[in-house]
Simulated scan of single mutants.
Amino acid sequence: MRVIAGAAKGRKLQTIEGLSTRPTTDRIKETLFNIIAFDLPQSNFLDLFSGSGAIGIEALSRGATQAVFVEHNPRCQRVIKENLMHTKLDKQSRVIGLEVPMALDQLAKEKGKFDIIFLDPPYEAGLTEPTLLKIVQGGLLNKDGYIIVERSAQIPLASIPGLRVLREKEYRTTVMTFLCLEEENI
């Protein structure tokens, strides 16, 4: 796995061996970042269920001002920090070592606001909808921002009060769903 473009282009990233993480493939990552390329400069990026941190690191490499990584697994946290040091993007980042619901509560208390929020929870764990609800309830998404959910094509995404689907990009077994705030929530 590597950084595809930007300031850290070509740098290899460590991954977590033996855990049930599913790193986003370079092909999917490249397509995703081509879609959001114009929104990245000067953005605040939130990477939930971060794993190795590859998505947030790519966002920083391509111009995001700041990235917050949320990952509760201590081994993954170490890998994220090592990847950030290796890419020299550590000064623009923060790693929160909590379960996602608790981290979202903490960010809401801090009045955190993000332009782009990426989440890639374990597909079968049923965490997507509760996480999206917490993001809306915590007011964590900027009014012009959006959320990207990576999910299995086999698992539909339930409608979330306060959010609407902007677009979906389907790959063979994976779907990227882009959501924004409904007008009345802005």
Rank of each mutant, 00 (worst) to 15 (best):
I57S: 02
T31A: 12
R164E: 15
I35S: 13
L163A: 05
R62P: 03
Y171I: 11
A37I: 11
V165L: 13
T177E: 08
E150K: 03
T31W: 03
L104W: 01
I55Q: 06
D90H: 15
L140H: 09
D39R: 12
T65V: 08
G97V: 04
R27W: 00
G138S: 10
C180P: 01
F33L: 00
K88W: 09
G10A: 08
L163R: 07
L166C: 09
A64S: 14
Y123N: 14
L133W: 07
L140M: 06
P161A: 02
G10W: 08
L157M: 00
T31Y: 03
M1T: 13
Y123C: 09
I160P: 04
N44K: 14
Q106E: 15
G97K: 10
I4R: 09
P41E: 00
V3D: 07
Q154L: 14
F178G: 01
G126D: 08
R11E: 11
V165Q: 10
A59N: 01
K9M: 06
K29G: 03
S50G: 12
D47R: 00
L60Q: 06
A8F: 11
F33S: 04
N142M: 07
K134Q: 15
F178K: 02
I160Q: 02
Q42L: 15
P130E: 13
P161T: 08
C180R: 13
V95D: 05
P122L: 05
E168T: 14
S43V: 01
A158C: 04
I55C: 10
A8L: 12
L140Q: 10
L98F: 03
R151W: 03
A158G: 02
P74K: 11
L181N: 02
T177G: 12
H86F: 11
G56E: 05
T31Q: 03
R167K: 15
V70R: 08
A158R: 09
S50W: 09
P161G: 03
E183W: 10
L48R: 05
E184A: 15
F118T: 04
A5R: 06
R78N: 13
K81Q: 15
K88Y: 13
V149D: 14
E99K: 13
L98G: 01
N34R: 00
A7E: 15
Q14N: 12
G112D: 08
P23T: 09
L127E: 07
R151S: 11
S43D: 09
K12G: 07
L140R: 05
I147V: 08
K143S: 14
R172N: 14
V100G: 08
A59C: 02
I147G: 01
T173Y: 11
T24E: 06
I116H: 07
K9F: 02
V165G: 03
N185M: 12
I186G: 10
T177F: 04
L157W: 00
L166H: 10
V3K: 04
D105Q: 15
F118R: 05
K29D: 06
S50M: 05
